[in-house]
């Protein structure tokens, strides 16, 4: 069900690399696709069950389910040079079974296609949240730290499992260059939990808690993905933004009011609000505004040559960028 006409390869110069992006229709997917589309080295194909409005003409979009046979055909017939897997569903309202089947089932299918049809490069966008916010966390977690997010936060189990699937794949398929990126909170026009949270007014905070947080601009994610596509790059990398700040500083920078809630009542209150449909926040996420979950990004800087370009102020303000 591909739309748009395939662009003939070749012409002068080296062959353009065919990059398949899952989750391309999401906001972050579009940011990454746009950045790679500007790069003459790459030819972009999208794989998403949602439509991709405003798609550039020479981007091919396959509007199919990751788990379907048609998704397999994309890899079978396509001579795919790289897969960027960002098609992780975060919808807190979806059922656990649906999320599990899509996220974990979909990812394992994709990795299977890559192994079968010799895709030489696989980039999986995981998250630094997989380490989990915990009071006993060191200030900066390295890539070797255990992924403990699911301990306190069962809803994170899928994301942890995707990360584990990808790292198993990294060890199993040694002829494939697998890169797992674990970025910190992505801010921008994206509709993810941290950006949505910071767009609230007033912003609920836990009384007496103001953890240090790391943020990264959505455009820097595109940059990190580009670094990961460099031939030879493989491994697990924490991706950090321009620095660390207390949560309250972000709130003040955005000029929002805060709503401090004592933590013993915050969880029951928001659990009720969530069930009534008044709030979109699963209460387990409150731990992210209570404890630190920060990572050390020096490996990505040294080995991938990745450094965030946006300044702290630009990154924070990005949540209010007009569409």
């Amino acid at each position: 069900m591909s739309s748009g006409e395939p662009v003939p390869r070749g012409g002068d110069g080296p062959r353009r690399k065919k990059v398949v992006i899952t989750g391309i229709a999401g906001r972050l997917g579009r940011v990454v696709a746009r950045a790679l589309h500007h790069d003459p080295r790459f030819l972009i194909e999208g794989l998403d069950r949602r439509p991709f409005p405003g798609k550039p003409k020479d981007v091919i979009h396959h509007q199919v389910d990751l788990r379907s046979k048609k998704a397999r055909d994309v890899f079978r017939t396509g001579e795919v040079d790289a897969l960027i897997h960002m098609g992780v569903m975060h919808d807190p309202r979806a059922t656990t079974a649906e999320l599990y089947s899509w996220n974990v089932g979909g990812t394992s299918k994709l990795l299977e296609y890559c192994a079968t049809y010799n895709v030489p490069k696989v980039v999986v966008l995981s998250s630094a949240n997989v380490y989990g916010p915990r009071p006993e966390n060191p200030q900066f977690l390295t890539e070797e730290a255990p992924l403990l997010a699911a301990q306190r936060f069962p809803a994170m189990r899928d994301l942890v499992e995707i990360d584990h699937l990808a790292s198993t794949f990294f060890w199993k398929a040694r002829d494939i260059e697998t890169v797992i990126l674990r970025p910190v909170h992505i801010l921008g026009r994206v509709h993810n939990a941290p950006s949505n949270y910071l767009r609230l007014d007033p912003i609920p905070m836990l009384l007496g808690f103001d953890p240090m947080v790391q943020v990264i601009h959505e455009r820097d994610i595109a940059e990190a993905v580009t670094c990961a596509l460099t031939p030879g790059a493989r491994g697990i990398y924490n991706i950090v933004g321009p620095g660390e700040v207390p949560l309250s500083v972000i709130v003040r920078e955005l000029g929002r009011r805060t709503l401090p809630i004592p933590h013993p009542i915050a969880k029951p209150l928001y659990a009720l609000a969530f069930r009534l449909g008044l709030s979109g926040y699963p209460v387990a996420e409150f731990d992210f505004i209570r404890y630190v979950c920060m990572v050390d990004g020096s490996r990505a800087e040294n080995e991938l040559g990745f450094r965030a370009r946006a300044t702290l102020r630009e990154t924070i303000r990005a949540v209010d960028d007009p569409d």
């Binding site: 009071p135 006993e136 966390n137 836990l206 007496g208 207390p246």
Partner: peptide, 18 residues
């Protein structure tokens, strides 16, 4: 200490670490 309200952020602001 990071689980105790106020101490959780005041001590780090004064240079103390977990």
């Amino acid at each position: 200490v990071p689980t105790v309200p106020f101490a959780s952020y005041l001590l780090p602001r004064w240079g103390q670490i977990t």
